[in-house]
Design a protein around this nucleic acid. Sequence first.
DNA 1: ACAGAAGCTTA
DNA 2: GTAAGCTTCTGTT
Length: 996
Amino acid sequence: MKKGDHLFLVDGSGYIFRAYHALPPLSRKSDGLPVGAVSGFCNMLWKLLREARNTDVGVTPTHFAVIFDYSSKTFRNELYPEYKANRSAPPEDLIPQFGLIREATRAFGLPCVEMEGFEADDLIATYCRLACEAGGDTTIVSSDKDLMQLVGPTVGMYDPMKDRQIGIPEVIEKWGVPPEKMIDLQALTGDSVDNVPGVPGIGPKTAAQLLEQFGNLDTLLERAGEIKQDKRRQSIIDNADKARISRELVTLKTDVPTAAGEGLDDFVLDPADGPKLIAFLKAMEFTSLTRRVAEATGTEVGEVEAASIAVERADTAHGPDVGSTFTSPLRGGRAEGAGGGTSSSAGASEPPPLTPPLKGEGDSPSLLSALRAEAAVADKIDVNAYHCIRDLPTLLRWVEEAREAGIVAFDTETTSLDPMQAELCGFSLAIRPGQACYVPVGHKNGQDDLLGGGLVDGQIPIREALAAIKPLMEDRSVLKIAQNLKYDLVIMQRHGVDVAPYDDTMLISYVLDAGVTGGHGMDFLADKWLGHKTIPFKDVAGSGKSFIGFHQVPLDRATCYAAEDADVTLRLWMVLKPRLAAKGLVSVYERLERPLVPVLARMEQRGISVDRQILSRLSGDLAQGAARLEEDIYQLIGERINIGSPKQLGDILFGRMGLPGGSKTKSGQWSTSAQLLEDLAAEGHELPRRIVDWRQLTKLKSTYTDALPGFINPETKRVHTSYALAATTTGRLSSSDPNLQNIPVRTAEGRKIRTAFIAEPGHKLISADYSQIELRVLAHVADIPQLKQAFADGADIHAITASEMFGVPVEGMPSEVRRRAKAINFGIIYGISAFGLANQLSIPREEAGAYIKKYFERFPGIRDYMDETKAFARENGFVETVFGRRIHYPEIRAANPSLRAFNERASINARLQGTAADIIRRAMIRMDDALLKAGLGARMLLQVHDELIFETVEAEVDATIPVVKAVMENAAMPAVSLSVPLQVDARAADNWDEAH
DNA sequence: ACAGAAGCTTA
DNA sequence: GTAAGCTTCTGTT
């Protein structure tokens, strides 16, 4: 190696992990072998070898090597046994890729270097030194901060994933110290990932500042006594030894023996061996890279045979010895099995096999449950074993078998996530684990001009197929099981098919595990309970630009996907349903959750009328208003920036214009929050006022007046929101597409949007909302006599609170006093903190703390309630609503005090918010029946947490309101008799604004 | 095309 | 201080 030469050192191990996490997962088509990281690695190598000059590096390598970690044990473990001790095992689908990436390196004809007892970083450091001594330059291909200590005049780093070079200025910019001080900086900050201790309480910012002040670590440790901040000084004095050992751990060895013995001449870059590389890429099935390599090397792809690649097994992931078993499908015998299996088992005319009855049928219920759960996971899921049903007699045989089994899981496949617009593509059924089928009815082949509407041949006509399953779906003696039934129910009801009785696995999971990390989606539940990775939807239907819609998916692939859904749903039910009884949650599921499904399905199908013209006129007004403000703003700042960009805005306001009171967000940007701008406006600054106003207008325009018309269904001419039953932790519903639970109400401008929500001609909207429901729940569960009395008297609760606290009579109370009491009452519901209350009221934290103290003195029951709730949550990991709904807080015992406090506040709030949510759920479940019984035609359209919106003919308004009020006010009964009355205010009008 | 941050709307 | 969803901008693939 000589002057002018340029050595590239690729941090192979580092790249593997980064590529694995940053790139979308990718599997080899023929057998599902995970190869995402391998693909990223090959593409990166090829790019560097071919066109490094065109990247941010800007030079062509003359020498090249890829460096790997050999094993997890190195000399550092002898120095400090805990080093990297908390590393968890690599993800399962990454393990086979370690070996493949070494193979790839060899296929590229590149040196593959690793050494026992040393990390890749040490080898890289050693080669850097050698190159430097020989007069050459080095580029380290990595973005690992541990390597930044090596950066210097002849050594740079390069991040291939961001195409970004890292030199001395970049290191200083990122860490605040030059590369030669990185070791000292890391010694101070430590590294939680590698378990390098560092000095507690010292982060990168503080470390950089200390090194700036003292020059280096040794001086800092010597003169630590001079540090002004008490805590910081003590921590550094106490932890000087930790800092020293940390420095040893993070210092890279530049004299690794064997490596030093080898010359860099072994790393001279040779031209690529086309056929060898192509053989490997072909085996990996990287078609586009194979083609590019073939073109560049002048190789004929067809003449190269795919290489036979051995894959390491999990237990040898880090060793150089290689387990076998996984041979290339292009040579080995698996290709036929994987490729040919689908079409034959999904074939048309096979009758369903006679399967033995589920073992244990006829046994006692508890035994049956246990056996069911066992059976659900006993057999591995084989997505190629499902049936594609394409003739009516076969479908009828399945229906008959489902009827005999008394249970069937089903799922619908459609063209859209919006059930009101979706077209049915097909449905799947599962009768026993592994015995599932897909019935395509609406798959298209794109030839719509021909007879048959472009339908794929060999599908049962949709009307016949629906007629065949309708009796099954409506059979009272057959339990139907679905995951997120509400969606399928809307689809089915639109085709004239009802579904009953039913269970919903998503809701069962929600009742069992609300608040448990991971959610209640099927893909997640399948992995969690069955250890099965479902086929991702995007793998069959594509996503983004490549999205084709389920009706275009070939029938064999559609069958694998759709029938898997039904199979998984059935198995989940077998595992989850028994757990409800075991945890005493059956009644929560049966009374609060399951019956709401058809109620919400009806509400969604009804939709609400929205007046396009009102919105369009509002849009125009808002656009005008915003344009005027824009001009003012440009005038004031003298430049036409993008006002919608908080980044640009912050730089102008607090950077160039130097306005006072700027603060930073956690990512280091200037904060331009409304609160902050309001404060500036109050001090007399023109600009912030305009910006706040501009934001309000553009928000209203983009989120509401512009977006809402797009949600008007062309067929029904109404807007159909979608309610999620299992989305919140507390039991509330959520609304989306569009969200009709956050339509503006606070400002006069915003309320105009509500005037666009209208009743049909001859009809009225009725809005009925609970008054102070969460405070009433608080008064009940915390058992506060004064609050209960106030509610019983129908008194002004905030005024009473103020009167109790401040000794001011309710008569003639200043509005400011009442406002503060109101803020405290809300604060209690949110699990109050002095910090939060101080923010809300713009008062000093001490003052807020004094209020809280006072409040607890006057209402000691509240403090007891809060303490009890925290203790219960800590003990059990969950809290319960008055109706027994469980809400989990897995992090309630966190060591991090602010995280723990957050969980405590959330759990306090959850009991109140959750109980209120349960109450309105009960009201909704009873409402339709109550209206029907009263002979009224009113239809419930919307729910907004404590409010229900109805539509009814004008003539029935007066009769409807008392019924609605009665159902809502008595909703807790008879399960719970609240010690506080519930009050509902209701009124009718032509639009939502006036009704509210 | 997608993800995260910032910001804003509701109860 | 609790619970949500949507839009824009920005940076990434």
